[in-house]
Computed example of a mutant assay.
Amino acid sequence: MHKDIATPVRTKEILQKHGFSFKKSLGQNFLIDPNILRNITEYGGLTKATGTIEIGPGIGALTEHLARSSKKVLAFEIDQRLLPILEDTLSPYDNVKVIHQDILKADVRDIVEEEFKDIEDIMVVANLPYYVTTPIIIKLLTERLPLRGIVVMLQKEVADRIGAKPGTKEYGSLSIAIQYYTKAETVMVVPKTVFMPQPNVDSAVIRLTLHKKPIVEVKDEEFFFQVTRASFAQRRKTILNNLTSQLPNGKAMKEEILTTLEQLNIDPTRRGETLSIEEFASLSNALYSIITKE
């Protein structure tokens, strides 16, 4: 058994050996607690039949745990300086492939089809770089990758927004987008003391289990998300005002928007944060017919 990478002593040794310094712009905070990494791996429910995608492997602390539990690991790393370190730290594992690409620009579907040809069960498990957490999750979901689920560590406040319920101040278009595609749960809160360097915020691990099909039926996904984003554009404004000012032709269509809200029994003076995903679905479906037939 190899010594875990994720201890303060071993992490320092590796960084010194390779003369590595942290880049703030890449949101690099490395985990130095093997127990937390074991827990994250367990929440992924990985088996020797699982293909695991990791984003931002750093020096390989989580990667080695994933390698021990999965059939194959694909790790996307944007920082070229980490490639030789990963080659060194992950040398004991022959089932890891490091891909030097920005996950946000990569054609993930193509890479997955190529690398996971014979693999049915695919999971994303990662300690995400905090400055791009949301775009990464949204990309993984909207590209309809063949995933069973996603287990990621991110800022606790983003985790709170992802799992938020209507009527709370954390609830927003992100909560709805995630709920549309997945069942979300926060499985663990992680203190900032287990990172090197220490971030300024606490973290949380969320588990997203993908729905077989989205939980509401919408005529047009893009338009549905446009309506939810518009509804939260200015949180103090009513749903009617937000939709009127944010939707294309909204100002010209104010009467039609008002009538639609009334027909759906949605009080036009309500705020976006009080609407459930079901209400947003029926609202976007009704507006879609009106706005697109212009």
Rank of each mutant, 00 (worst) to 15 (best):
K169N: 12
A126D: 10
V96P: 01
V205S: 12
D160L: 07
F76E: 02
K105H: 08
A67C: 04
L208H: 04
I119Y: 02
I53S: 03
A67Q: 02
L145P: 00
F223A: 14
E256Q: 13
P197M: 00
I290V: 15
V112D: 01
F22P: 14
I78E: 10
F195E: 13
L128F: 05
G27Y: 10
T7L: 05
V227Q: 07
R161P: 06
A281C: 11
T209I: 08
A286F: 10
K117S: 10
R81C: 10
E262V: 07
I290F: 04
L264S: 11
D110P: 01
L243E: 09
I85F: 03
Q246W: 00
V201L: 03
Q263E: 15
V151P: 01
F116C: 02
D94I: 07
Y93M: 09
S203A: 14
R270M: 14
D160Q: 13
I257L: 13
E13V: 03
T134N: 01
G163M: 05
P129N: 07
M1I: 10
G167M: 03
K3F: 09
V124H: 12
I36E: 11
N249S: 14
K97D: 00
S21K: 14
S69C: 06
K72T: 01
P199Y: 08
V98N: 01
I99K: 01
K165D: 13
P8D: 12
G149N: 13
L264M: 14
L74E: 04
T142N: 07
F224A: 09
R271H: 13
E262I: 05
Y93E: 05
L264D: 14
A61L: 07
E13N: 07
N127F: 09
A233K: 07
Y171A: 03
K97T: 02
V108E: 00
T269E: 14
K169T: 15
E222A: 15
G51A: 05
Y93W: 07
T63I: 00
G58D: 08
A75Y: 00
Y288P: 06
I290P: 13
P166Y: 08
T7S: 12
P214K: 05
Q226N: 08
A177C: 12
I36P: 05
E157W: 04
S69G: 03
H65K: 11
N95V: 02
T182I: 03
